[in-house]
């Protein structure tokens, strides 16, 4: 059989298996619209009302958080916040500070757990996109790890829903968790201790989708790797060409 004849058969088989599904245009459109909030989607009144309530709750939470945040000091770096909406809004940022080690009930684990992974305070505010300064966050986190701020290890770290956990055998590799004002919804770890340190940030996937825009500046020597797992987005900022910390976490469903 000629190569051409064989290729023809291959093409036919590919068409049998990989033809886009019928009415894909409409279905994909509708599925996306249901979450995009365009006019057709708004006809679903219950969802619209639920969204409004969520937006209100998130707004109040954000307002409370902003009021509790110390004012920016002169000379501090400009806010690394951009807006894609019609009315740009700027959030205050603070200069690098010591990592917050407050207890947070949304995480199961030692008392130094931080990171509101259960709530996505900005989810409903779809018009604002935050662009964290990843190089700054990396520098901060490396500084924390080098000064031995703290390391909570040896316990099982899991999100509040228990879907994503830090592997117990990986705990010794990581220092953290930390928090950064430049990425207030994220929870940070650093490691491994013996080599060029990488930084891992865990945040809700929903927060990423609505409100985060991650990018390293051109010419950066750092690399960005991401892994979405069970509603959580793990982001590794590293000087290495491959991720090393993503493997420290696992989905409990895969166990």
């Amino acid at each position: 059989m000629s190569e051409k004849g064989f290729d023809t058969e291959v093409d036919a088989a590919l068409r049998r298996r990989f033809t886009p599904p019928a009415r894909l245009e409409e279905r994909a459109f509708d599925r996306a619209l249901a979450q995009l909030g365009t006019p057709r989607a708004r006809r679903a009144l219950p969802w619209r009302m639920a969204g409004a309530l969520l937006a209100l709750a998130a707004g109040l939470a954000l307002l409370a958080r902003l009021l509790a945040t110390p004012r920016e000091e002169p000379g501090s770096p400009p806010p690394s916040v951009v807006s894609s909406g019609d009315a740009p809004r700027i959030i205050e940022t603070r200069p690098p500070a010591a990592p917050a080690l407050a207890e947070d009930p949304t995480w199961h684990g030692p008392a130094c757990a931080v990171g509101p992974l259960e709530d996505a305070p900005a989810v409903a505010e779809t018009t604002r996109v935050v662009r964290p300064d990843l190089e700054k966050i990396y520098a901060q986190a490396v500084g924390w790890s080098q000064t031995g701020v703290q390391a909570c290890t040896g316990e099982s770290w899991c999100t509040s829903e228990g879907t994503v956990c830090l592997k117990s055998e990986a705990a010794a590799l990581l220092a953290g968790p930390f928090s950064s004002e430049d990425w207030p919804t994220g929870t940070l770890w650093t490691g491994p201790p013996q080599e060029d340190t990488a930084v891992l940030v865990a945040d809700l996937d929903a927060t990423h989708r609505c409100c985060l825009d991650l990018a390293l500046p051109e010419g950066s020597t750092l690399h960005l790797f991401m892994w979405r797992v069970d509603g959580v987005m793990l982001t590794e900022i590293t000087p290495h060409g491959e991720p090393r910390l993503l493997d420290c976490f696992e989905s409990t469903r895969a166990r």
């Binding site: 599904p21 996306a32 989708r209």
Partner: peptide
């Protein structure tokens, strides 16, 4: 199709 939808949701705010 799931990928397509997810990509759409990601791209829409950045349009």
């Amino acid at each position: 199709e799931d990928v397509l939808q997810e990509a759409c949701l990601m791209a829409f705010p950045k349009r």
